[in-house]
Nucleic acid binder design. Structure first.
Length: 423
RNA sequence: GGAGGGAUGGCCGAGCGGUUGAUGGCACCUGUCUUGAAAACAGGCAUGCGCGCAAGCGUAUCGGGGGUUCGAAUCCUCCUCCCUCCGCCA
């Protein structure tokens, strides 16, 4: 949610921001029209309520003196019924304003390059050598099937498409990756580990921006009202919903492993092979709550924390800054980490690190106090994958494959796999 | 699933249907005292929204919605959440 005052006082900047991210800039004008109507009505209605409160006090005073207040009561009857009518109109306007506010995406930070789609993203830096194989690099799903560690047929039988069963050392490798990532982030990078529910209520989904716009992208348990989380960002950010945090607690840094669930509606035919795009996948997520003045520093650090995993795994990757047109709904600025996939001869997203500024905080009511006397103000939230585990698994299979079809275990993972060096 | 109890400000906790945005305590802030601190004492201390250059004014908020009433933190009702007991159960 954007600051309504920003829309009122600086509509051109908001329009421009929306346009740059390919959103409907007329949202601003619809908002302003209703906002003005709403403010006029506010004035009128509050005047009437002021009168009502005054007369009500008079009645109280008269009653206590055991005097008659028939005239006042008569006026109150009339006033109250008129207030009630106006209140209904007022509630409708407020509802409309709220709906519009919730549908408006965040606007890009000034530093974000203006562009149309992913082709306009900018490579910021890269790491590692793209390995040359003396043979044709096989795809991760081919390797996984051959080694018997990825079983798509079994998954299709028990669930359907876009699911996978990890078997044997595959299951162990996935588990090793999760443990390694959590250890790195808790012990080296200073994050506190949490393990929250993966079923959340609609309010949580609204708080981080998945609802109301992206309902169809999530699994929904209609009988109970729960949603399956598409990312741990949801429960972890909502950990502090409706709270005012003391500034000396900031930045708060959480790391969270969770399974993630996505319907992937509208991505038919896209990434159907392998485990790149699944309905259920594992992810280790980093979430930060930061002071507004420091959030962009925190974004840089968070991105580097996510990168530390790829570096330790010695996987070649690059960091890409998303252009305005490629930005996600809630984000003001995003860096994607893209890991190298030899079989495809291309980089693929494995982490997305974003600063949401106060967009989510406003929706979720997360504030901080700059000092004990200060008024509470919205803080900034950030998050990034650290990393998508399934995609890391796939990247390891591809980058660590050997000619004979087996794979070398990355050095840092060996302690997590009983010291074995090959799968 | 069944039976009962509860939800009030950052926290604890009081609150006859009418000067209650709400007593009191803790925490916090300012001052006095002190070399400094503690203690003691005095004062201050909720948030959102609208209007206003501002001082400020108005309005709303006692888990959420609806109702009764001239008037609701207080009465009724539905919902949510928490607690206790029973049942079931990883």
């Amino acid at each position: 949610m954007l600051d309504p005052k920003l829309i009122r006082n600086n509509p051109d900047a908001v329009r421009k921001g929306l346009k740059n991210r390919k959103a409907d800039a007329s949202l601003v004008d619809r908002f302003l029209a209703i906002d003005e109507e709403w403010r006029e009505l506010t004035l009128e209605i509050e005047e009437m309520k002021a009168r009502r409160n005054k007369v009500s006090d008079q009645i109280g005073i008269l009653k206590r003196k055991k005097e008659k207040a028939d005239n006042q009561i008569e006026e109150m009857k009339e006033l109250s019924s008129r207030v009630k009518e106006l209140d209904e109109e007022y509630a409708k306007l407020e509802e409309k304003l709220k709906d519009l506010s919730l549908e408006m995406p965040n606007i890009p930070h000034v530093s974000v390059p203006v562009g149309f789609d992913s082709r306009d993203n900018i490579e910021v830096r890269s790491f590692g050598e793209k390995k040359k194989f003396g043979f044709k690099a096989r795809s991760h799903d081919e390797i996984g099937k051959k080694l018997g560690i990825l079983d798509f047929e079994a998954a299709a039988k028990i669930s359907g498409s876009r699911f996978v069963v990890y078997r044997g050392l595959g299951a162990a490798l996935e588990r090793a990756l999760i443990s390694f990532m959590l250890d790195q982030h808790t012990k080296e990078n200073g994050y506190a580990e949490v393990l929250p529910p993966v079923l959340v209520n609609p309010k949580s989904m609204l708080g981080t921006g998945q609802l109301p716009k992206f309902e169809e992208e999530m699994f929904h348990l209609k009988d109970d009202g729960f949603y399956l989380i598409p990312t741990a960002e949801v429960p972890v950010t909502n950990l502090h919903r409706e709270e005012v945090l003391k500034v000396d607690r900031l930045p708060i840094k959480y790391v969270c492993y969770s399974p993630c669930f996505r319907r992937e509606a509208g991505s038919y035919g896209k990434d159907v092979k392998g485990i790149i795009r699944q309905h259920q996948f594992n992810k280790v997520e980093l979430v930060k709550f930061a002071e507004p003045g420091r959030s962009y520093d925190e974004l840089e650090k968070l991105t580097k924390d996510a990168e530390s995993i790829l570096q330790k795994l010695e996987l070649p990757y690059r960091v890409v800054e998303l252009c305005s047109g490629d930005l996600g709904f809630s984000s003001a600025k995003t860096y994607d980490l893209e890991v190298w996939f030899p079989s495809e001869n291309q980089y693929r997203e494995i982490s997305s690190c974003s600063n949401f500024e106060s967009f989510q905080a406003r929706r979720a009511g997360i504030k901080y106090k700059a000092d004990p006397k200060a008024k509470p103000d919205f803080l900034h939230t950030l998050n990034g994958s650290g990393l998508a585990v399934g995609r890391t698994f796939a990247a390891i299979l591809e980058n660590y494959q050997l000619k004979n079809g087996s794979i070398k275990v990355p050095r840092v993972l060996r302690p997590y796999l009983g010291g074995i060096e090959q799968i």
